[in-house]
Amino acid sequence: MSAFTDWDILRNLLLAARWTVALSLIAFAGGALVGLLLTFMQISGRVVLVQMTRLYVELFQGTPLLMQLFLVFFGISLFGIDVSPWTAAALALTLFSSAYLTEIWRGCIESIPKGQWEASRCLGLNYVEVMYHIILPQALRIAIAPTVGFSVQIVKGTALASIIGFVELTKAGTMLNNATFEPFKVFGFVALIYFLLCYPLSVASRMLERKLHASG
């Protein structure tokens, strides 16, 4: 029968999980960077920039991540540029997470009570000073928990990269299943590894939420 021991399966899955982690990290870092830029565009108060950002966010929130992956992967090749599944997945996930992070951060900024603005204005602070000294420091605190929480969505989102042929955890699971015909065991392990990646993040998010709430 199968030449794979349980340990072989697990070892191969864990090796592939490194790519899940790498892809998650890239997507998160890239998403945060682009998201930060978009957030600043959004709070710039310039109508054109705000509307462009809104459109971007709506576009990525209103379409399935899978379609975004396909569009990036196949779309870019249409222009005669060869993209590897890795590049396509990293790019698509970056765009996807930047849209969600922008939305999360906008919500945090807007949740700062109007009274903070009014008090600052009465003290003569200008827009940039209010943002820098009053609004953003408070918004940052509020943003930490949901941002960490969203990273769970990114980790799970990387599973879709398997469809364009990128060998991460899910793809490795599929391949191992084809070789061993033990789907329950293989995908059980896959699920377990995802859980071990995501669970600490959820817990951290909840703890941060509680901690910042209590002292806020």
Partner: peptide, 14 residues
């Protein structure tokens, strides 16, 4: 703001 100060019902401290 150098001539007029304002205090609010809900303090609005930072």
């Amino acid at each position: 703001s150098k001539s007029v100060g304002m205090v609010f019902q809900h303090f609005n401290l930072f």
